[in-house]
């Protein structure tokens, strides 16, 4: 029987040649070397990222007392979360942080996209323009917040001088009213972070094949139509990444209000991170503080998961249509 029956094993083998004994050993060897090289980093990540996260979750469910000998945990409780949820301070901080995140990310996305479109069309000097744009982004937030506090200062700030020169009236007390202070913070954030969004969007723009735009032009599409029907859909994955990064960062807002307003006036600009910091390190209430920290992390995590899901579907659609 000269049937050419090929054993299934051989089919698989034909598709993918079996690694030689030598190759297998060397694979194992490389794996070992790989683990060896990454182990210091893993230890650091374990000690400074994984352990603190677990520890924070533990603290948030404990009655914590701080003593000279460290923390003493005095029994499990859900009281920390109860205290947190029933606190007006927490609800306000959650509201403020959410509004702040939504507004700044939306504005930065719109402005960043406009900047990126302009940068992409620049025939010369793109490098210099990008370098200039990146200056605000590269400044440490604490320093740029100090700079903004000089600008906003109602007695000797630049803003009040300009205001006086233009209107002749006395300067507005920008950081002295809740709404004004919130807008002032958002403005400083937009100034600092728009370049970051612009750079990401620019990278996405450059990746779009020029044939797409040529095809649109041949079909007689207007510039506006091309932007909405070609540029934006193809940019969506890039915009998604930009939004993801920004939401993660904006929700952890701390340094800007800490320096500029101290959470004031009253507690109107106190973000969740500031509230957690104050609860832990000013009031030495580590249990409730940990509850604020953990719940903030969980909220961001849920936001990002929901977002990633939407983003994934988007990517799927793009592949089909492309």
């Amino acid at each position: 029987m000269a049937t050419t029956e090929i054993p299934a094993r051989d089919v698989a083998a034909a598709r993918k040649p079996a690694p030689s004994r030598r190759a297998r050993t060397s694979n194992r060897h490389y794996a070992r070397v790989g683990w060896g090289f990454s182990s210091p980093a893993l230890v650091v990540i374990g000690a400074f990222t994984i352990f603190p996260i677990i520890f924070a979750v533990v603290l948030s469910f404990e009655n914590v007392n701080v003593t000279a000998a460290g923390f003493s945990l005095q029994g499990a409780t859900v009281g920390n979360y109860h205290d947190m949820v029933s606190s007006g301070l927490w609800r306000h901080a959650l509201w403020f942080t959410t509004i702040y995140t939504v507004v700044t990310v939306a504005v930065e996305l719109a402005l960043g996209t406009i900047f990126a479109l302009v940068l992409e069309r620049l025939s010369g000097g793109r490098g210099i323009m990008m370098a200039l744009l990146l200056i605000p982004w590269s400044l440490i937030t604490v320093i740029s917040a100090e700079l903004w506090s000089y600008i906003y200062n109602p007695t000797y700030g630049i803003l009040s001088e300009i205001w006086h020169a233009v209107t002749g009236g006395s300067a507005p007390n920008v950081l002295g009213y809740p709404l004004d202070a919130t807008i002032a913070l958002m403005f400083a954030d937009v100034w600092k972070t728009t370049p970051f969004v612009a750079i990401i969007v620019l990278a996405g723009l450059v990746m779009i094949p020029t044939e797409m735009f040529e095809a649109a032009e041949v079909d007689g599409a207007s510039g506006w139509k091309t932007f909405w029907r070609v540029t934006v859909p193809l940019l969506r994955p890039t915009l998604g990444i930009a939004v993801l990064f920004r939401v993660l960062q904006a929700f952890g807002l701390f340094d800007l209000p800490y320096v500029l307003t101290g959470g004031g006036p009253g507690t109107s600009t106190q973000s969740l991170a500031m509230l957690g910091y104050n609860t832990m390190f000013t009031n030495i209430d580590f249990g409730p503080g940990a509850a604020v920290a953990v719940s903030t992390a969980v909220i961001v995590l849920i936001l990002c998961l929901v977002f990633l899901r939407a983003f994934k579907q988007q990517v799927g659609k793009e592949t089909i249509s492309a």
Partner: peptide, 17 residues
């Protein structure tokens, strides 16, 4: 206290925040 934790945890809280 029932259990004791040291400086590590304090640093950790900061990392989380």
């Amino acid at each position: 206290g029932r259990r004791r934790w040291g400086a590590f945890g304090v640093g950790g809280m900061v990392a989380v925040m």
